[in-house]
Simulated assay, not measured.
Amino acid sequence: MSRLDEEWADHRPAVFGAAYRITGSVADAEDITQDVWLRASARESLDDVRDLRAWLVTVAARRAYDVLGSARARRVDYVGPWLPEPLLTGPDAAEPVLVDETAGTAMLVVMEELSPPERVAFVLHQAFEVPYEQIADVLGRSAGACRQLASRARRKIAAALPARPAPARERDRVLEAFRSAYERGDEAALLALLDPDATYTTDGGGRVFAARKVIAGAGRVATALLRVGARNTFRLEFAEVNGRRELLVRRDGRPAAVDTVEVAGGRITAIRRVLNPEKLTSVHRS
Rank of each mutant, 00 (worst) to 15 (best):
A168H: 13
L108D: 03
G140T: 06
G140R: 00
A103Q: 05
D195E: 14
D137G: 02
L114Q: 04
V99M: 00
A168T: 12
V99A: 07
A127R: 03
D92H: 09
L194T: 07
K156Y: 04
G144E: 12
V174G: 14
A127Q: 01
L114E: 02
A153G: 03
E95T: 11
G140H: 02
G185K: 12
L139G: 01
D137C: 01
A163M: 11
A136F: 04
A106E: 15
P116S: 11
V174L: 11
V138T: 00
E95C: 04
L193Y: 11
S151D: 12
L161V: 10
Y182C: 07
A198E: 14
G185S: 12
R152P: 01
L190W: 09
A160H: 08
A93T: 04
P91H: 03
E101M: 02
L149Y: 07
L98Q: 01
T105L: 14
Q126K: 15
F122T: 00
V123Y: 03
E187H: 12
E133H: 04
Y182L: 15
A188I: 08
T89S: 11
R173S: 15
A198V: 14
L193M: 14
V110N: 07
H125C: 02
T199N: 06
L191S: 11
R155H: 10
E133Y: 06
S115M: 08
A153V: 06
S142N: 04
V120I: 04
D195L: 10
A158R: 14
V97E: 09
L114V: 03
A188F: 08
I157E: 01
T199Q: 12
P165S: 15
L161P: 02
E113H: 08
C146A: 05
T199A: 13
P165V: 11
V110M: 14
A160G: 08
S151Q: 12
A121L: 01
T105N: 15
P117Q: 07
A103N: 13
E183G: 06
A94S: 15
A153Y: 02
